[in-house]
Design a protein around this nucleic acid. Structure first.
Lengths: 170, 170
DNA sequence: ACATATACGTCAACATGGCTGACGTAAACT
DNA sequence: AGTTTACGTCAGCCATGTTGACGTATATGT
């Protein structure tokens, strides 16, 4: 569990040691390089197919929440519908993504991966997985837990439910 | 709070629970959303000034290692010199960055921030700092340590010295 | 001393993936 | 029946990455 007493352990009145600028910068840098390196392998595969990161993100979240309506995907990605529509049009033209009309609300378009889309998403996931698995394995379970905790803390509380919903029982 | 005992609860000999797909996906997602949210505040300020993330990255690393030659910055950013030159030209035209001829090697251009550049970098740093400080504070020292450990593990070992050099005593 | 390699700059063209603004359609809501 | 919502689309702009070609100054090695 997080040590909620760390502040009391710091020199009286001083800013806690690990909140000093050097520690903040270390976090900024590692987050940048960590993210960049995590996606590097998938970028290579995507480039071979003439796709980009934007396509991967759509593919990823549709895989994660099959049947997700377009609006939910827009909320997750936080981009405009025009940006997303370019990507979704590509994915549909390639037969990777399919749309069905919403059952509850017929205005909605529910997104799903086709078999080909699912195969590609799995392949791309494996590119990321290998790096993450190695990093988790070397770091150990306690570190992974801390990793998650800090990252959740970076997300504004209001946005967390949207992201936590991805993790919900499937 | 995350239960740090979950692995021990896994079946004997099984791949540790935290390496299963759900845990990998959780890491991928939190890393994406964490990074995105960390830089969101700086993006707003940059947009007001007509600058982008690429400008910020250059500014950031020059602040971090004053006197860094262009080639080192290229290695860190991992982009082409043509991409970087556009950004550096902008920053120099705005009087945020200055170049001096290398002393050891006169072919090198050593990069430094001007007073204005330094002021802007500080301002942008503060945008990131607030979020990171909150996340660190809520998570605690142990979590921060785990956060760093996992992220370093995502970086290929060969690239780590370059990044660790940023942290070296200044 | 000369040849080669290195550090950097620059011109040109192109792709990706964001953005804004405007406009349209079908379905749901009131 | 009128309004709002979910989604699609056309058109154009901007930031930032890419490749390829070419130029100059300086360092280095035989």
């Amino acid at each position: 569990m997080a040590d909620v007493n760390f502040v009391r352990a710091a020199p009286l009145g001083a800013s806690p040691l690990f909140l000093r600028e050097a520690e903040i910068r270390r976090g900024i840098e590692l987050l940048y390089f960590g993210y960049t390196n995590m996606v590097k392998g998938a970028d290579v595969r995507l480039a071979e197919l003439g796709l980009g990161r934007a396509h991967h993100r759509a593919l990823y979240f549709i895989a994660r929440r099959p049947g997700m309506p377009v609006g939910d995907l827009l909320d997750l990605l936080n981009i405009t519908k025009q940006s997303l529509s370019r990507v979704l049009a590509d994915l549909q033209a390639r037969g990777l993504v399919a749309q069905t009309i919403g059952t509850r609300d017929r205005r909605q378009r529910m997104l799903r991966l086709t078999a080909a889309g699912s195969a590609l998403e799995t392949e791309l996931f494996e590119c990321l997985r290998d790096g993450v698995t190695r990093a988790y394995g070397h770091a150990g379970q306690a570190a992974v837990s801390g990793f998650w905790t800090v990252l959740i803390g970076l997300i504004p509380p209001d946005d967390r439910p949207l992201i936590e919903a991805l993790q919900a029982a499937e």
